[in-house]
C-alpha cells in the first residue's frame, strides 16, 4: 500500500529519522515498535504530510506521490497520539462533528455511526460527554471518529500507550476486526506483547530501523535458541555475578522472576548460571527485539 524509501529527517542537531525504508503491505497490520523518542510519531507525520521530510521518497499504491500528500490523505484515517475529542460534546456529537469535517454524506452517516458504536461497544454511552469517558473509551471514540469516512488505510499513532492492559487487549480486538474488513493498518506501540498480533513489524530505535520483516518470518528464522531459567538465588545478584563473563552476560536478560538466555552458537553456557529449572521457550517479539537490538549495537561498535 505504502512504500517508504530512504526517509531522513533532522530537527536542528537531532537526527529524528536516519535512512528509514520499509513497506506497509495492503490488508495487513503493520506494527512500528519502539520506545519514546524512537521516531515513531515523526515517521507517521511524514507519511500524512504533517512534517516535511528532508530526503527520501514515498510511494502510495506504487506511485511516487512527490509532494502531493492528498493522494495519501484522501484514503487515510490518521489518529495522532493526542487525538482531540471535544470533552463538552457527547460521544454522538463528537462523531457528528468529525463526519461534518470529513464530508461524510448525510445518508450514510446514521448507519455508519451506529455500526461503529456497536463495533466498539460504545452504543450504551452515546449520550455521555466525551470528557467523562475512561481512557480506553476515549481511544475507542477517537478511532470511531477517524473510521467515519471509511478510509482504506488507517494510521494509529500509539493508540494504547498508557492504556491499561485489559483495555489494550480490547482495542486490538477491534483492530483485528478492521483487518478482516480488508483495511490496511499501520500502528505504532511501545508494547511488544500486543505487537504479536500484527503481521509485519518494524523495530525502530533512535530513528533507525534495526530489523523489519513479517512476524511469521521472524518467528521461523530466529537464529538463536531461547531458554527460560529459574535462578537459584536472587535474580539481580546472580545477574551481577555473571557480569564478568561478557560472552555470557551479552546473552542474558531478566523477565519477571526468570533469566532469559539466548544461545546463538553451539556451545551452551547454561551451567554457568546457578539455576533451579531450565526450559526451552519459543521466542516472543520482546526477545527478538532485545536480540536484534544488541546485535545492531555490536555491529556498530
Amino acid at each position: 500500500m505504502i512504500k517508504l524509501d530512504h526517509i531522513s529527517k533532522r530537527f536542528g542537531d537531532i537526527a529524528a529519522l536516519g535512512d528509514v525504508s520499509f513497506e506497509i503491505p495492503a490488508s495487513q497490520i503493520t506494527i512500528v515498535a519502539g520506545a519514546d523518542g524512537a521516531g515513531k510519531s515523526t515517521l507517521f507525520k511524514i507519511m500524512v504530510g504533517l512534517v516535511k521530510k528532508d530526503s527520501g521518497q514515498i510511494y502510495f499504491k506504487g506511485r511516487d506521490i512527490g509532494s502531493d500528500f492528498s493522494q495519501i490523505t484522501a484514503h487515510t484515517g490518521y489518529m495522532p497520539e493526542r487525538f482531540s475529542l471535544y470533552p463538552d460534546l457527547s460521544v454522538e456529537e463528537n462523531l457528528n462533528f468529525y463526519a461534518d469535517i470529513r464530508h461524510v454524506p448525510h445518508k450514510q452517516r446514521e448507519e455508519r455511526k451506529h455500526q461503529l458504536l456497536e463495533k466498539t461497544g460504545m452504543l450504551p454511552f452515546k449520550k455521555r460527554r466525551a470528557g467523562a469517558l475512561s481512557g480506553g473509551m476515549k481511544q475507542k471514540l477517537s478511532l470511531s471518529s477517524i473510521l467515519l469516512s471509511a478510509p482504506e488505510f488507517i494510521i494509529l499513532d500509539e493508540p494504547t500507550t498508557g492504556v491499561d492492559p485489559l483495555s489494550r487487549l480490547e482495542f486490538f480486538n477491534i483492530i483485528e476486526d478492521l483487518k478482516k474488513e480488508g483495511k490496511t493498518i499501520a500502528i505504532s506501540t511501545p508494547y511488544l506483547d500486543e505487537a504479536e498480533r500484527g503481521d509485519y513489524i518494524v523495530f525502530l530505535k533512535d530513528g533507525h530501523v534495526f530489523k523489519r520483516d513479517s512476524i511469521e518470518n521472524l518467528r521461523q528464522q530466529f537464529p538463536a535458541k531461547l531458554f527460560r531459567i529459574l535462578p537459584d538465588g536472587n535474580i539481580f545478584d546472580i545477574m551481577e555475578s555473571v557480569k564478568k563473563n561478557s560472552q555470557l552476560s551479552e546473552s542474558l536478560y531478566i523477565r519477571g522472576k526468570y533469566i532469559k538466555y539466548l544461545q546463538s552458537g553451539q556451545e551452551s553456557l547454561l551451567n554457568l548460571i546457578p539455576h533451579r529449572e531450565v526450559e526451552e521457550e519459543k521466542p516472543k517479539l520482546e526477545d527478538m527485539y532485545i536480540y536484534y537490538e544488541r546485535l545492531a549495537k555490536k555491529q556498530r561498535t
Binding site: 520506545a35 498508557g162 511501545p190 539481580f236 545477574m239 527485539y289 532485545i290 537490538e293
Partner: peptide
C-alpha cells in the same frame, strides 16, 4: 518504566534493586 525500551526498562530494575 512506561514508554521506555525493553533493555532500558530492565536496567532500571537493577537500579531499584
Amino acid at each position: 518504566t512506561s514508554g521506555v525500551d525493553p533493555e532500558v526498562r530492565r536496567d532500571f530494575w537493577f537500579e531499584i534493586y
